[in-house]
């Protein structure tokens, strides 16, 4: 008994050591610090973002000095990007595609790999486009990579809703209207959330009007692009 326990402990330690070498746990942890109410509210916000008023993230202040140290975790702030919803939505999306292949008797296990791979490819493509535009437009706000991944992963929620409608054998006009609605909702959500990334308020003084205009155009293009990405995946 004692021997078994120590073996398990040693195994755990080994895994933890190797995991820490490859993955920065401290940076990843706040993204999964979610609560039930946060997840429900965020999903509601993703499906119906039109009435949400305040989109800024809440700054976290140090208890002793009162200086700002990063942002609050998603548990306490609905506007904070998390990775829980994108990861879960990604897995659900892959399974749903498999189910929809199964309903037309075309399922084979080989579907799962290419589906996940193409979904990942879309995320990487969007990430590359954003990074490239941020460089070309000379935007100096340093956004964490994981934030961008989270924001581009939220589109799977809209895609899942569309696929559900498709699965329920609704007429194609209903499917297309639902698809357009979820696309618009995702685009609007991204427009409002990324606004604080691409147009930082603090450096408003240094941004010239033409530059500001270009950045706004980039934001709008990015939200319109969501339709394209979602269409590829549906």
């Amino acid at each position: 008994m004692q021997f078994g326990r120590s073996a398990v402990m040693a195994g755990q330690e080994y895994v933890e050591q190797n995991l820490n070498r490859w993955v920065n746990r401290a940076a990843l942890q706040p993204y999964f610090n979610v609560s039930n109410s946060y997840v429900v509210n965020k999903l509601k916000l993703l499906v119906f973002p039109w009435r949400h008023k305040l989109w800024t993230r809440i700054l976290k202040r140090s208890e002793t000095t009162g200086e700002t140290i990063g942002y609050l975790a998603p548990r306490d702030d609905i506007n904070a990007p998390d990775l829980y919803i994108p990861v879960m939505a990604f897995v659900t999306y892959v399974l749903l595609v498999a189910i929809s292949a199964g309903t037309s008797n075309k399922f084979s296990p080989e579907i799962l790999g290419p589906t996940a791979s193409s979904a990942l490819a879309v995320i990487i493509l969007e990430f590359t486009i954003i990074k490239l535009c941020v460089y070309v437009l000379n935007i100096t706000s340093d956004v964490p990579i994981l934030d961008l991944l989270a924001y581009s992963g939220y589109k799977f929620v809209g895609i899942i809703v569309s696929i559900m409608v498709q699965l329920s054998k609704a007429p194609s006009s209903v499917f297309w209207s639902v698809f357009l609605y979820t696309g618009a909702a995702t685009g609007f959500f991204l427009l409002r959330s990324l606004r604080y990334v691409i147009l930082p308020e603090a450096s408003a003084g240094t941004v010239l009007p033409p530059q500001r205009k270009r950045r706004i155009h980039f934001l709008i293009c990015l939200s319109v692009l969501q339709f394209g990405f979602m269409w590829i995946l549906v």
């Binding site: 290419p114 589906t115 791979s117 193409s118 990942l120 490819a121 990487i124 493509l125 590359t128 590829i232």
Partner: peptide
Amino acid sequence: MAIGIFGLLEVML
């Protein structure tokens, strides 16, 4: 299933 992750990497390369 338009393009996989390796296809995308190839395009970038």
